[in-house]
Amino acid sequence: MSDINPMSIALKTCAKTFADGTKALEPLDLSINAGETVVFLGPSGCGKTTTLRIIAGLEEPDAGGQVLFDGQDVTQTPIEQRNVGMVFQSYALFPNMSVAENIGYGLKIRKMPSSQIRTRVGEMLGMMQIEKLANRRIDQLSGGQRQRVALARAIAVRPRALLLDEPLTALDAKLRDTLRLEIDTLLRSLQITAIYVTHDQAEAMALGDRIVVMEHGRVAQIGAPRDIYQKPATRFVADFIGTMNRLNGAVRNGVFTCRAGDLPWPEAPADASEILFRPEDIRVTESGEASRLQGTIASAFFLGDRTRLFVEVGEKLPLVVESTARRDFSRGEQIGLAIDPRGILIL
């Protein structure tokens, strides 16, 4: 039904050591299903872009590494023969060509007759809602327009996988939100195998069927966005995605005790020296409600729909608490806190 014929991608013990000896990527095994959107997420230098470039054919894995497209070894195939679409952070649009020529370039390379190129370019322009820009030069486009052209150009050749390297990083926040939605719609409708590299967790959460969180050239966790958020496998993942609160203490007689007070503790696990939880799993208790945790407000930021509180509880870092209560909070105020036991993590 679709013209796109999505393929599965597999990496087998792909490692990358650069000429200067830097180890960019530890041996990595990864399978990406046909039609799936996988997001590589991590701080800069974590190896996510290197992995993408290995899949693209722009980098070669160290000896022993293998890249498989639909089960076929393409490790030695240069990028120009891999039939993957690629979108670059800096767009990489050709300044010597118009918008239409950019989009049609891959088709020209494939020796498609020019009448068909025109039709296909027209479709692409329509799909990205940039029909009016067809004859513009690249330096006459805004950042958002450039990104749309880059996407159209990558998709025009009907690649078997779409590789996106931080495509929204160079844009401002508002435009990022708009384009994120557009890319999501696009990937869903194309059913294309897509690999998306970003350091922005919101982008990763919104777009990924699965997220691969990377750190220091290693995979820290692979999972669906919800799993990554709710069940982070490591402290790094817990801290990198969303905000995480932590309390140090000890379990004694079925109670977890810390400087701020205590909370009831289930039978298992028997012990914990540190508990972690998200801001949405802790709340400010109502006046009159009995609370076993106490803290002092260090700062309060009114955000409109809620108030973000930083609460001093005798730990290294204050707790981040979000309250939707219709009341003022003032610095130095003593408040009671309650933690939802379902949100507690022990790593």
Binding site: N83, F88, A92, Y105, G106, R153, V157
Partner: peptide, 29 residues
Amino acid sequence: AIDLNTLEEGAASLGASWWRRFRDIVLPN
């Protein structure tokens, strides 16, 4: 002044061989 590497990578990702990249992208730019 132009981002030569990325432009070439972009062309390569669209299927252009080295000579096509040199002729279509490097020289005109």
